[in-house]
Design a protein around this nucleic acid. Sequence first.
RNA 1: GUGGGUGUAGCUCAGCUGGUUAGAGCGCCGGAUUGUGGAUCCGGAGGUCGCGGGUUCGAAACCCGUCAUCCACCCCA
Length: 418
Amino acid sequence: MIKGIKGVKDILPEETPRWRLIEETARRWAVLYGFHEIRVPIFEVTALFARSIGASTDIVEKEMYTFQDRDGTSITLRPEGTAGTVRAYIEHNRAADPLPQKYFYTGPMFRHERPQAGRLRQFHQFGVESFGVADPRADVEVIALLWRMLSDLKLPSMTLEINNLGYAADREAYRPQLVAFLKQREETLCGNCRRRIDANPLRVLDCKVPQCRAATEAAPRLADCLSEQARAHFGSVLGELEAIGIPYSLNHRLVRGLDYYCLTTFEVTSTSLGAQNAVGAGGRYDALVETLGGPVTPAVGFAVGVERMAMMLPLAASSSESASVYVAGFGDRGSAAGFSALEELRLAGIRAVTDFRSGSLKSHLRQADRLRSQFALIIGDDEVVKGSAILRDMETKVQQEVFLTSLSSQVSSLLRIS
RNA sequence: GUGGGUGUAGCUCAGCUGGUUAGAGCGCCGGAUUGUGGAUCCGGAGGUCGCGGGUUCGAAACCCGUCAUCCACCCCA
């Protein structure tokens, strides 16, 4: 048997209503906040991701699905959505358009990781990117959208954590202080963190190993090295969040795994998720557009994991999609008439189904019951002779005769009454 | 990449310290007087016991390997 690829899941019909609820809710809120949908390719030239996400990040180092195109160019399945959106923004010279440049996207992302609860190799994100506005209220707008969206879905036990990463120059000033501090306690750190001291010291602060946490408790804080502008920016973000009633908690250890973030970074987690507890995350990335060859453009955005949101939504929340009419045609003439009636109802916009395998009225009604149809349209040979059919209300068992010549109009009016 | 758990019917699982034709519940199909569903009763279909070796008179069970899957580390959405 040919099976699906490891870490790549089918989303079966039982689950798709839940997915649609998530996607429709996200879309509705994004539009409400003035964002417009963009659809970018799921694969790009490898260099795009390497340059934007950061060469020394885990994603680029070991998690990308990279392969050679037929002409030898290196192609990568997108591991996240920001890089492609920024590429499109630059390529189509969207900066020349004076309208607010606010985009949202949704679709599959790919990372070669070991599958786990809430972690897949093909997973889905919904994300937004807001280009061109350095004002802290742009950060708040994006965070508010994220928070309102998740609240609307009534996801349980969510917390918003936020931190200030400052500008690149701030981090350059801070880095030697942190490295010096970490080198002193190198012995107490986990192997991973020892390697990080040189590669990406900020990440040590985000390590979950208890010894590392304890060792970095007294570490110098980035917050103390921040420039006046960085502090001011973050201060207004927090102020505006309070003004519009969005609860947050400061987390000075919060360091995102992608290199392009600066100033505001945030993450929404839930305790009801398991080990992979991040529902969504994002931040400001003022240098990325320029890094990728575009004009200097401040930007801020976030992405949420659709699977992780789905995990927290009850399966029962899915709306029923049962048909209104089950057509029970039986006998030689009856089943022929039933097949015509089925098509006629559908052309009239009535959701109608049948089961071609069923030959007896009994098995038809059993199917109608199982499919939770509102009505059964019974057509046997006797009815065909009379030029009529019987419309049975499956719940009240009330039956009514309808004429085959005016079938769809009669059925629609009866459907409207019930 | 590193650990640990689990692989028996479509689904959830049982199968005692190795013993004959591998089971249950749910689901599915059919029947219980002639053309009326759900409940009940009866019957039926459906399984290379993940795969490959080995031990044994005999393996679903024990051993080795392998694959898959789940959870955790790591990392992140």
